[in-house]
Design a protein around this nucleic acid. Structure first.
Lengths: 349, 349
DNA sequence: CTGAAAGCGCTTACAG
DNA sequence: CTGAAAGCGCTTACAG
């Protein structure tokens, strides 16, 4: 390995001077600069961050704790972090934990041993993880939380206003004239979406119908199952709002299996605007979370903490969601008409 | 920061002993072990890898250079790497380069400065990148290439037999009775797929038809465009084999816009078996690359190099692809019948 | 089984 | 503008 000493010797200067040149700290004469520049190029010198971080206490590393990189949402987040971090000469070391508490804890420890300068953390949230993070934050590790929070709240966070996003989705359906609107979600996740659904319907003077709420896992299977139940109702919904895109596509799938058409027979709205939504047939109307921007904001908050330029108090950056209208939603009139035709056909046969 | 000295003082022993305990190297008496264990727990000591790597020359970091984490293929690969690496106590630092040569070169340098113990690299391949990697490999950095190669071949690689995979796809279509089979691919990527397409048709005694080969970008846009051209042919194909899933779904989209049904009017096969394929409507028949396994193999090769337990010569691990039959392919008979109906309808109107 | 000491490659006051 | 030297937190022979 070629060290700074090698460069110094070649340039006939001291390591101190080379170090000043490399870090652009302190004076270095023009002639010296040139000699150093050349020596570095000739030797192919790359400074050792290990040695550097030993003295500076800065590793140039930031840790990203995620449960599943395969999740498009996480992937885009990672991409956003990456882009911004590399601009600042930082590297991000990613740990995927599969949503497991034990593995999350281990990841946190490993990251700590690598002296990461900051941490970007996504769920899961458990008491043990909470405590670990609170301790780390108190010891001074800059932490930014994405879509979760700490108790007590000792770290910055960036969240997304899913309540507002969900309201947009339901209002869109209402504007299209739908009155029987179903919701598919999970028991203990995405609660904001469910609340927004209920509130928005109530605000429109529509009384809730228990039959129109399906609780399922937030994946395609859950969507198929929910869609089947919903569409087989004697008075089925004309529109379905699903808590994420996979679920929404499961519902579309269920419709497809019943020879029902989307959006002609039933409108479907998803959430997240993953790749799936755009590529779906029909392309899915959905609520987009600003994933890239979340990554960017997280890095920005983190760097303020790292450089000590942030405010004293904890900051929360709440981003708004956006409705992306594609082809899976249509006026309620259409579905009513279709349904009428279907039942007529049915009577004839 | 609590250091090994703090632990040593608390345990009333020397740092040397603590170090031996921590690394499980050399003898440590039972009584001492217990004292150290307790001191570490009480102090919350986590060894500094920066200091460690300064002496051991091992960072516990492996670098992953990818162009786009958002690509499902890359994401799964990353996940596979991650899983295996963390088993070994390693962290992976990821650099996404957006397929840009300059950024790839920078990423490589930054990774080098972090003293990564090994590198997993995916395309792009350019002369400058090739040279940089060849130099690094010759300096002794363990490198595993995924889906690319070096000139001269100085690094291990894991590849996938796309030729064989593509043959599976085309044979599937032939077995379904299709004779007019189109191919959609890119100019200079996925050449194995194209060759397999041509060879397999020839082997079946079908002469190639230039009109049935569409060269487009490997994304959804390209697929829509290719699908439009192909389906508007006076004698359109009854089946389309696309070089990846996005393109395939673009073709499906083009069919959908023409009120053509998949697979009734035209069968479509993709490649990669990304999430998109499973969620598509209809679920897409496609060729799966063993992405997770590729990640695992890459790490396995890399660790052999890192530990010096690998063979002297370069090794290439070639994994096979698998055909995943879903609903986007059907017997040719169906499409011929449908086409006949369509033209009859057409004549009537 | 344990300790003292050198050394890894850098940065950072401190002199000059 | 430049150099000498201490120190960052560990590991590793070498003694004992």
């Amino acid at each position: 390995m070629v060290t700074m000493y090698d460069v110094a010797k070649r340039a006939e200067l001291s390591v101190g001077t080379v170090s000043r040149y490399v870090n652009d700290s302190g004076y270095v004469g023009a002639a010296s600069r040139e000699k150093i520049r050349r020596a570095i190029a000739e030797l192919g010198f790359v400074p050792s961050t290990a040695a550097r971080s030993l003295t500076t206490k800065m590793s140039g590393l930031i840790g990203f704790v995620a449960s599943d990189l395969t999740n498009p949402f996480t992937a885009e987040l990672a991409q956003g972090l990456q882009e911004r971090a590399s601009h600042q000469g930082y590297c991000v070391v990613t740990s995927s934990t599969d949503g497991d508490e034990q593995r999350t804890l281990e990841a946190l420890t490993v990251l700590e041993s690598h002296q990461v300068d900051g941490l970007v953390v996504t769920p899961p949230e458990t008491p043990a993880i909470n405590d670990h993070l609170v301790t780390a934050a108190r010891k001074g590790t800059p932490i930014v939380l994405i879509g979760m929070e700490l108790d007590p709240p000792v770290a910055d966070r960036v969240t997304t206003d899913t309540y507002q996003g969900a309201r947009l989705a339901v209002e869109h359906l209402l504007e299209l004239g739908h009155r029987r609107i179903a919701y598919v979600g999970a028991r203990s996740q995405a609660k904001g979406r469910r609340r927004a659904y209920a509130d928005t319907l109530r605000a429109a003077g529509i009384s809730g119908d228990k039959d129109l709420i399906a609780v399922r896992a937030l994946n395609r299977q859950g969507g198929v199952s929910a869609g089947s139940t919903l569409l087989d109702l004697s008075d089925p919904p004309t529109a379905v709002f699903a808590a994420n895109d996979s679920v929404a596509l499961g519902v579309v799938q269920a419709a497809y299996r019943r020879k029902l058409r989307v959006p002609d027979d039933v409108s479907v709205v998803g959430f997240d605007d993953t790749d799936l939504a755009e590529h779906a047939i029909p392309p899915l109307t959905t609520v987009a979370q600003p994933k890239l921007q979340m990554g960017h904001e997280a890095i920005s908050l983190l760097f303020h903490r790292i450089k000590g330029t942030g405010p004293d108090r904890i900051v929360e950056r709440r981003l708004t969601c956006e409705l992306v209208v594609r082809d899976s939603t249509a006026p309620a009139a259409a579905s009513r008409r279709r349904r009428a035709q279907r039942s007529r056909r049915f009577q004839r046969s």
